Amino acid sequence: MRIRRALPTELAAVGDLTVAAYAPFVDGPEDPYTHHLRDAARRDREAELWVATDEDGRLLGTVTTCPVGSPWREIAADDEGEFRMLAVAPDAQGQGVGDALVAHSVAVSRRRRHRAVVLSSLRTMAAAHRVYQRQGFRRTPERDWAPLPGVDLITFARDLEE
Score class of each variant (00 low, 15 high):
157 A>G: 12
66 C>F: 01
130 R>W: 10
25 F>C: 05
161 E>G: 11
55 E>W: 01
107 A>G: 10
98 G>L: 13
133 Q>C: 13
89 A>E: 05
34 T>C: 12
18 T>Y: 12
81 G>E: 04
90 P>D: 15
60 L>C: 06
121 S>D: 07
7 L>E: 12
65 T>P: 11
133 Q>M: 14
6 A>N: 03
73 R>E: 09
88 V>I: 08
7 L>T: 12
30 E>D: 13
55 E>S: 14
90 P>S: 15
151 V>G: 05
106 V>T: 08
94 G>K: 07
71 P>I: 07
64 T>M: 13
108 V>M: 04
67 P>H: 03
28 G>V: 06
17 L>F: 04
77 A>K: 07
10 E>I: 03
142 E>Q: 14
97 V>A: 13
135 Q>D: 12
36 H>D: 15
119 L>C: 11
114 H>G: 14
77 A>E: 15
162 E>D: 14
57 G>L: 04
20 A>V: 04
113 R>M: 14
114 H>S: 11
66 C>G: 01
32 P>K: 01
88 V>H: 02
139 R>V: 09
141 P>S: 15
69 G>W: 02
82 E>T: 06
152 D>F: 06
160 L>H: 05
127 A>Y: 04
51 V>E: 04
63 V>F: 01
47 A>R: 03
118 V>E: 07
6 A>K: 00
119 L>P: 00
68 V>C: 02
63 V>P: 00
74 E>N: 02
5 R>Y: 04
79 D>C: 11
92 A>H: 11
67 P>F: 00
116 A>V: 03
104 H>E: 02
160 L>K: 06
27 D>I: 05
95 Q>C: 12
67 P>K: 01
76 A>W: 07
31 D>P: 05
91 D>W: 07
121 S>E: 01
20 A>E: 14
33 Y>M: 09
51 V>A: 03
34 T>M: 00
138 R>L: 06
132 Y>I: 01
117 V>I: 11
125 M>N: 03
85 M>W: 06
57 G>E: 08
43 R>C: 15
141 P>R: 10
66 C>R: 02
125 M>W: 06
62 T>I: 04
123 R>D: 13
123 R>Q: 15
98 G>K: 01
49 L>H: 00
84 R>D: 08
137 F>R: 00
86 L>D: 04
124 T>R: 09
97 V>P: 03
25 F>L: 10
124 T>H: 05
121 S>P: 00
42 R>K: 14
98 G>N: 02
130 R>I: 03
132 Y>T: 12
39 D>M: 04
36 H>N: 11
159 D>R: 12
85 M>N: 03
139 R>G: 05
128 A>N: 07
10 E>L: 02
140 T>Y: 01
15 G>H: 01
145 W>F: 15
38 R>V: 05
119 L>H: 01
64 T>R: 00
98 G>Y: 08
121 S>M: 08
20 A>S: 10
105 S>A: 15
112 R>P: 07
116 A>G: 13
25 F>H: 10
156 F>P: 03
111 R>A: 11
77 A>Q: 15
98 G>V: 10
30 E>F: 08
145 W>V: 05
53 T>E: 12
113 R>Y: 12
21 A>L: 09
145 W>G: 13
31 D>E: 07
28 G>W: 15
24 P>F: 08
69 G>I: 00
65 T>A: 10
144 D>E: 10
65 T>I: 06
103 A>I: 01
54 D>A: 08
45 R>M: 10
138 R>C: 11
145 W>Q: 10
64 T>H: 00
11 L>D: 04
143 R>Y: 04
131 V>L: 05
117 V>C: 04
